[in-house]
Structure formats: structure tokens, C-alpha cells
Simulated scan of single mutants.
Amino acid sequence: MSILLILGFSGLFLGYKYFINEYDERITDTILEPRAHISTDGPYILYDKDSVQTIYVDDEEGDYAIQKHKTSIDEFDRKVEVKVFTHDQKEKEIFSVSLADTLEATPSEYLASQKIMAISNIEGNFYILRKLLRANGIIDEDCNWAFGKGHLVLMGDFVHRGLNVTQCLWLCYKLEQQAKDAGGAVHFLLGNHEAMNMYGDLVHVRSKYKRLAEKLGMDYSGDILGENSELGRWLRKKNVVEKIGNYLFVHGGLSKRIVNLKISIDSLNKYARHYYGVDYDHIRADPMAGLVFGKWGPLWYRGYMRNPKDTVLQEIQSIQQAFGVDHIVIGHTEVEAIKLIHGRNLVNINVPYPRYNQADQRGYALWIENQTFYATDDLGHRVELKETQ
């Protein structure tokens, strides 16, 4: 009973604290995050037949107000502004995004690239995403693409828990368009949290987003990030696994059960996209869909980090043979440091990210250049990774 009372009083204290400070990202567990308000967010662009509605949340005379603007599709300005707050930049940063003329399904396979940077599990943490991208020359000071023909791989779980989920998605959206124009590429893979968002499991969604949906009389998954929203449509075009040269990128992993299906990467992605946004009860009713979106599927699988070494080596070899790759890069399962596992066959890059300037904690990403692996941090310092057994 005493523990429950302590948690209750802690919740009240945290609720008050978060009511007066939208910048504080320290609490990432939504169970202890009873926010009582909405805060800076958007834009959400929602389509309805011949009209477009744009929704923002912004400061207005010391409070937060929802701003809605509806226009015809013909008159809609396809360039939007995104406002971002972070603890280290109280004056909101603004970057612009030009909407794509069309949104098409992302290819599953790409030719080799001389330079690749991969990031996983950002979870709405715009602060560290921006630091990593700027420090490593991926973007300039105005959040524009600066990586030329390089490839940036964003390996899922960019939503939930953080206070800048929408802004992180818009930055990825923007960079994808700019990279394509420069001859490079941005690969946004889905993780289990993006999938949860789309089929309505909101257990890890910060309350500011749920409260906004309530105030709008909408559903967060089905409306705000639904198939009739720009970001929702964009997410529904994404893959669960991609191949770049001889590298395979997947959020969780490909279990033996998936490999035994003997289907191509493209077929696996097409099948997964068919079920984006479908209620999870219907997903489980289809054995194949239940496999793809369950614990043995590419979004949730943790076997590489938990199974015996011999079993993992067999799994890796089966993937290498089935899909013609040498290296597998994963996120999802948290590790203390980016590491090469079983020689150079497997790389896990899901290292916890700081949410504040901390001298003793850095944010890390994977850097691949000329077939050499490096861990690079949010200051741009790189260390070559050593092979392990």
C-alpha cells in the first residue's frame, strides 16, 4: 500500500511538473507520465475528398491552442513549417518541408553505397536525432540534406515515448525527398512501435498526443496518423526489411521461421504493408500475418541476442544464403554499445540515447564506409569496431 501511495504522489508531482514544462524529456515511461496538457505539435495534414485540413498546436498568450485551417486541395500550399522545441533550445526551431507530389512504396533492395549511416530507436527524441545528423555531416544547420550520395538508414521505433514524435517524422520525411534529389537515399524502416501505432496499440504513446486526439474528437491511430493523413500515408509505404548492397537492415531480425517461408524481401515487405493499420485481432486471425507481426517476425524478433551461439550462427548463415548478404544490422534489443557480433556477420546498434547534455553519455550511430564499420557519436567522433567471436 505504501508503495502505491508513493507512486500516486509521485504521479501528482510529475503531472504538475510536466504541466508547466513542455521541454522536459527525462521521463520516458508513459506509466509515470500523467501529462495534463497538449503542447507544441504538428502539422497534421488530413485529407477529406476535395479538401485538406492542417492542424497545429502552438503557444498562444501563455497557453497552448489548437490551430486548424481547411482549404481545397487545389489551393493547398504543399510547403509546411514544422516547429520543434528541445530542452537545449527554448526558442523553437523551425524547418520547412515540401510535400512529395506522390507517395510510392519504397524499394526493397538498393545498390551498394560507399557511405551508410544507420540509427535506431530514436523514440521521438529530436534532440539527439538532430545532434547525430549534424555532427556527422548528414544535415546542415538548417536541417537540410548534406550527405550527397550517401545512405541514411532509420531502423524503426522513431515514435512513442518522446515529446517530438511528429517533428522527428517530418524531418525524416523531408530528408527522404532531399536525399533522392541529391542521388542519395533515406531508408525509413518500420519497427514494432510504428506497427503498434498503426493498429491502435497506444500503450507507449505520450499523453500529449492522446489528449490532442481527444480534443479534436479524433482517433490518434486511425485519424491523426491514419491512412488519410500525410504522415500516415507515408508510413504505410515503408518496409520492414531492406537490402543495400551486401547489408541487410531490419529492426528486430529474421527468424528461422521467416526464412523458411522462402519468400523474397520484396514479397515480405508487400505482405507486411497489406496489414498496416489492420486491427491486431484480424492480424492474429491470419497465421501468416500473425507470424510476420508476432515475436518471430522482423519487427519483434530478439533471438540473435538471446539464443545460444550455435543457433544464432545457423540463423545468420541461413539469412546470408537466402538473401545474398554478408552482414545483418539490427536494432530493437538494447545493448550497452554498438558491437560486431559473431565476427562481422551481425551488428546491433540499439544503444540508449541521452535526452540531455551529459558529459558522461553520448548518442551513437553506426557508420559504414568502404566496408569498414565504425561507431560514431553525437560529436562526430568515430571509432572503428573490432570483430568479436
Rank of each mutant, 00 (worst) to 15 (best):
I31A: 13
H87Q: 13
G184Y: 02
I244M: 03
G380F: 05
I3G: 11
M155E: 09
H69N: 15
V82T: 03
F126V: 02
Y173T: 06
Y304A: 01
S318W: 05
L171K: 02
K309P: 10
H187K: 05
C168M: 06
K262C: 10
E91K: 08
A185K: 04
Y353P: 11
N370E: 11
D142M: 08
Q358R: 14
G184P: 00
H160K: 06
S318A: 12
Y64C: 12
R362E: 13
Y127W: 07
D326P: 03
G252K: 03
G294Y: 07
F249W: 07
T372H: 09
E141N: 11
N350L: 00
A182S: 12
E334Q: 09
G148N: 11
K92D: 11
M1D: 14
L133Q: 00
V278T: 14
E60K: 15
L5C: 12
N246E: 14
Y127M: 01
T102V: 10
I6N: 12
N345D: 15
A359C: 11
T166L: 05
Y301N: 06
H327L: 02
M198N: 10
P354A: 03
T86Y: 02
I94A: 09
G363Q: 04
G290Q: 02
E336F: 08
E25Y: 01
D142R: 10
V186C: 00
G156I: 04
D77G: 11
V250F: 00
V57D: 08
Y353M: 15
D201Q: 10
L291S: 06
Y16Q: 13
E60V: 14
E141Y: 01
P107L: 04
R134D: 12
Y353E: 14
Y220L: 12
A322V: 09
R78A: 09
L132S: 03
K238E: 10
N136C: 01
L248Y: 00
L346R: 05
R130A: 11
H204D: 15
L254S: 00
N348Q: 04
V205Y: 09
I73E: 13
K238M: 03
V240M: 07
V250I: 05
G253F: 05
K309L: 08
E75F: 10
E81D: 15
S96F: 01
N350W: 01
D101L: 03
G252Y: 03
Y220C: 08
E336H: 13
K386S: 15
G191F: 03
G363N: 03
D266V: 09
I27G: 00
S72R: 06
N121W: 08
N246W: 06
M305A: 11
K49T: 10
K68W: 05
L190F: 05
K339I: 11
C143L: 15
